[in-house]
Write a protein that binds this DNA or RNA. Structure first.
Ligand code: MG
Ligand code: MG
Lengths: 479, 479
DNA sequence: GTGATGTTTATAAACACGACT
DNA sequence: ACAGTCGTGTTTATAAACATC
């Protein structure tokens, strides 16, 4: 009943037996044809976080929802690593990510039964795999890793100088901040909006792979602009940028001091955010994806740890652990694990795939105590609930567009999960602003853009409680 | 400059050198005298999560804020385990918790410099250590663990039947859901409100320890009431309880099916939530705490792992790991680690110390799409931002009380961090309701209480944009 | 350059619950 | 009916990589 043809390998205990999805009403997820995505170094761990992978999976469907099992399958199908190399614990991590990140929302049809995982519309950046697709020949600047073809993913401890150190893990313990994460930014399908600030982009990207154009979009991922007023004691979480680091000239002059805030927006170092969008807009965000992978079934290199396996012994040499931040033993070099691609490629904003997030900017919200006041509703938080700025509406797939394909369910009342494809803010009058926003990640300029947007396209402000409640609320807050 | 007298042990690398806090303006944190809190099994890992410990620490100050270093110190002083037994990585975990949980908000005074960690008022349940203080002689019902006096916290591998399995960890890998977490619930200091549903409480708690009365409050911790209407596709995160599991008679009949939601509220099994509050209301939430610990400096049992240490080898026997949820090898019994107290005491709600959290109840918020509509501001979310129900105000220390001791800083405009001591909802007219809420954790009944509260004490609804914006917003939403 | 402080991601685990066997 | 297993979810603990000051 599964689509991915159970592998019966080290995952046998995970195979489903319930027939709840026998009807298989959900679409998409059609077993990818042959345009392998990860064929360069298939079986290598993809440089994407679990959060990104889940978004890829969910956003690959038109309904923008997916069951857990299908998420597993989608990831396995597009990244053989997880089917053939990773320990079964990777599924635990998937579930962990689904629960931990509130951008992933579980939904159940009215009559309960199966439950789907969706991406909260305001957090959905509509990441799709094809957006980060890397052409098989473009091993130039970005995209360092994945070079070692099928790195020896066997076992057999390779006695690290210490002794039985480096215990031979199968899963890369931490995705090492690949310096070439490709961060996709989806745009309304209208203007391609080429915007390449640096020459890092070479138009030879669409090399010769699958039927899809290999977009290479790289831009600051998280929209966390800091525009906090000068409140004497403001939560650092959203402060110390716009008004504070803004010199009298209005230029964001590197953060002042409230350093170490969450979600860096500006690219840490390097150049401006690079964005490259070929005119081809064939994306994975629908029923037009035929990704695939080398389904050559590497027979048995899965979970056959003979004897010396698991658990990095480590320390054995470490004196009483001194630093409170644990660190790897040093990785004696020479003996890198199958997952230790070890490609010290340049630096890069290291970008991420986190949900769209904004901080409540004091510029927008006068000040009033900064805590629960402004909107008591926004604080619920299990984690960092605050926020609340028009950026939400803009930088994400707005669910406020009236005639957007609403994905109705037979029951009628159904939240509309849209992606930027059908994104239309307000009444088509804000689109250009929206586009500009995604590109312009500077703090105070972004806040200005937001203000402009919020006051355009909504001149009537009559529909406070209706579909455009976003804007209504916004206006109420902004007066 | 530190208060806790640096130990210079395995923590040397952590000692501070900056003189930023030379003035040591912050109060409290006075080195506890001698009323050891954890003397029964001092050096044992306390049964509290890091999140709880941090709350204990921060709430022990009158300013309700604390620097990271002081949090370290406070915890070390009150739980010798961390100073003498735990690996230095525990500080990493503290920092991790501070960052991860958005209930912990970092603040910096206007002129930046030091940064304080605070608890978001709407999430602060005002947990203090004295509230969960367990009398040294009450080893009866609850409070199973911590019996083994100073369990042999040495090293030396004790060859588990397998071979070098059970690699001898120093830190308990996961706080094993002690079945006796004492969950404090703070009340307005007026009515003690004794409320013991079962006889599990034996009044011999105040045995002979410190000057403080050992309260024993045990009640469902997280206020996550599920009152979701029958929207065809509602986020499971907040649904399937009230209206669904509510039989025509109105009794919450165990959850229907939308199982596995976050934050169980009702006690999983066992009896009703037990609440015991002695009339003595001396709490740790101020400058009246003189906790302490056995500062007998166990010389050297800290980090001297001779050779066989660390990293549970595990698996060695495990076939190819089958389950996607990793599990311990089985713990051959007989050879329990120092942290393996192994007290299979009954069952218990296992309660937690998570921040106050509520779910947007469809009963309160008619329906309107359930996504960003209701309050566009609330969605920002990095994690689970939604929510939004009057419960926030009630079940936490409301920051809306006008004459509450506001903890002004010299700069004047300062958010008021209050704790339930000075908690007053609206205008003292809601207190009884507030108390009732903490006790009544049933879903739909709770929602009713909330509605009652929301419509009491706010008859004027005139101050929409002022301090009582909470209520103004609430009224707008409820019409 | 080093250490303290913060932020994120990865993994392992414990455990709850419902469905199936 | 009942127990054991499994899939799915939710949390907490740890280790780590990195960033910034
Ligand atoms: Mg989630
Ligand atoms: Mg935090």
């Amino acid at each position: 009943m599964r689509l991915g043809s159970g592998d019966g390998k080290a995952d046998s205990a995970e195979e489903e037996t319930s027939g709840t999805d026998s009807l298989k009403v959900e679409e998409e997820h059609k077993a990818p044809a042959a345009s392998h995505l990860w064929q360069v170094g298939a079986f290598e761990r993809p440089p994407y976080s679990y959060m990104a992978l889940i978004q890829f999976a969910i956003n690959s469907t038109t309904s923008k929802r997916m069951t857990l099992k299908d998420i597993y399958t989608w990831i396995e199908e597009h990244f053989p690593y997880f089917r053939h190399v990773a320990k079964p614990g990777w599924k635990n991590s998937i579930r962990h990510n689904l629960s931990l990140h509130d951008m992933f929302v579980r939904e159940s049809p009215a009559n309960n039964k199966i439950s789907y995982w969706t991406i909260h519309p305001q957090a959905n950046r509509c990441l799709t795999l094809d957006q980060v697709f890397k052409a098989p020949g473009s091993s130039s600047s970005a995209c360092s890793e994945q070079q070692q073809r099928t790195p020896e993913l066997s076992r057999s401890a390779q006695g690290i100088p210490g002794n039985a150190k480096a215990p031979e893990r199968k899963m890369k313990p931490l995705l090492p901040r690949i310096d070439s994460y490709l961060i996709p930014v989806q745009f309304p399908v209208t203007q391609p909006l080429l915007f390449s600030t640096l020459e890092t982009f070479s138009p030879d990207l669409g090399v010769s792979d699958g039927p899809r154009s290999c977009k290479r979009v790289k831009i600051a991922p998280k929209v966390l602009l800091e525009t906090e007023a000068t409140s004497p004691l403001a939560p650092v979480k959203s402060e110390t940028d716009s008004l504070k680091s803004q010199t009298p000239l209005g230029f964001p002059r590197r953060q002042a001091n409230g350093s170490r805030r969450k979600q860096q927006l500006v690219t840490p170092r390097s150049q401006e955010p690079e964005l490259v969008l070929p005119d081809n807009s064939a994306s994975d965000s629908g029923l037009d994806n035929d990704f695939s992978f080398l389904e050559e079934a590497p027979s048995q290199l899965t979970q056959d740890e003979g004897s010396s396996f698991k658990t990095p012994v480590k320390e054995k040499f470490m004196k009483p652990p001194a630093s409170s931040t644990p660190s790897k033993p040093i990785a004696e070099a020479s003996c890198l694990q199958p997952w230790e691609a070890e490609s010290p490629l340049a630096r890069d904003p290291l970008t991420e795939f986190s949900p769209v997030r904004v901080s409540r900017s004091a510029a927008l919200t006068p000040f009033k105590d900064n805590y629960g006041t402004l909107s008591f509703w926004e604080t619920p938080f299990k984690d960092l609930p605050y926020f609340g700025s028009p950026l939400d509406v803009m930088s994400t797939c707005s669910p406020a567009s009236p005639q957007t394909e609403t994905l109705e369910t037979p029951t009628g009342a159904r939240k509309r999960r849209s992606c930027s494809k059908e994104l239309q803010v307000g009444g088509s009058s804000n689109r250009s602003l929206l586009e500009g926003l995604v590109l312009d990640t500077k703090d105070e300029s972004l806040s200005k853009i937001l203000l402009d947007i919020s006051f355009s396209g909504m001149e009537e402000e009559n529909s406070i409680g209706t579909d455009s409640t976003y804007w209504g609320q916004l206006f109420n807050e902004l007066r």
